[in-house]
């Protein structure tokens, strides 16, 4: 059983795993979550703007939104991160200091916003046209009917897709290491990678992988749960009833209004 021993030593060296655990918890996990959550928040905000522009009646808003989306969805994430992380390093230094960390977050946000924009756009466009028309017929402006009625309905529908996007961001956050992070800024992958190089053993990376799974797998199942809830919807259960109840309800309501001779 030599090969089994080799596998265990290479991937599941518990000593090496235990050694890297404090760093993964204290540094890696923390930074991965900070990067992912920050990128998601900024991505959602930008994505909403892109989505609303994308369905605007005005071509001057629609076309830029389209180009933006095509650009950031079409490029490999690593390329965008490097272009932005290195291209704007000077500018970033004067604002944020020498760390490339903020630029990494911004690059991830831009990529995420392109995807999230498409998610929002699909959600908003899936709302029945009658909703917007009912608003307009009441005298609401386009902007108001979008903000008060159409967009909230669209968002609710795409919550599961947004969680999926968050999972994608968590995984993509590992790419930020390409920008060269300070020791305290390293996210899960980089912490695991450094330890793997030092110990000449892949177990720390496997440990980092387990951390990713601990974040992403429960979320995936949460999505499925929500997806079911949203699709089936909640309805007040009611006993079978006679249509006559409603006929009576109206007759009793107000003969003055209905003008019926009851």
């Amino acid at each position: 059983m030599d090969w089994l021993n080799t596998i265990i030593r290479t991937f599941f060296d518990f000593g090496a795993m235990a050694e890297v655990l404090p760093q993964l918890l204290g540094v890696g996990l923390l930074n991965t979550l900070i990067i992912s959550v920050a990128a998601t928040i900024i991505g959602v905000a930008l994505g909403m703007i892109v989505a609303v522009m994308g369905i605007s009646p005005s071509k001057w808003l629609r076309v830029p939104a389209r180009i933006y989306t095509d650009l950031f969805r079409g490029l490999p994430a690593i390329l965008t991160i490097l272009l932005i992380g290195q291209g704007f390093a000077r500018l970033s230094q004067s604002i944020f200091g020498p760390s490339p960390y903020p630029l990494g977050i911004i690059a991830l946000s831009l990529i995420a916003s392109a995807y999230i924009g498409e998610i929002f756009r699909a959600g908003i466009q899936s709302v029945d046209k009658g909703q917007g028309e009912a608003c307009r017929a009441l005298g609401m402006s386009y902007a108001r009917s979008m903000a008060l009625v159409v967009v909230p309905q669209g968002i609710r529908r795409v919550l599961p897709a947004l969680v999926n996007q968050f999972i994608a961001i968590v995984k993509d956050s590992s790419l930020v290491y390409f920008l060269g992070l300070l020791v305290t800024e390293r996210e899960l992958f980089r912490v695991g990678q450094d330890a793997a190089v030092l110990s000449g053993n892949l177990s720390p990376l496997v440990m980092a992988g387990i951390f990713y799974l601990v974040i992403t797998v429960p979320l995936t199942h949460l999505v499925n749960y929500f997806d079911n809830r949203f699709r089936t919807g909640r309805r007040r259960p009611s006993a079978p009833s006679s249509g006559l109840n409603e006929v009576k309800e109206l007759d009793a309501a107000s003969p003055l209004i209905t003008g019926s001779n009851t």
Partner: peptide, 27 residues
């Protein structure tokens, strides 16, 4: 103009995540 003209649709077009009261109060 539309604020002066009421319209009722074949498929009601009520706002599903608002109560009946909020549907009427919104505008």
């Amino acid at each position: 103009l539309r604020a002066r003209i009421g319209m009722v649709f074949q498929h009601f077009n009520l706002f599903p995540d608002h109560t009946a009261l909020e549907n009427v109060a919104l505008a």
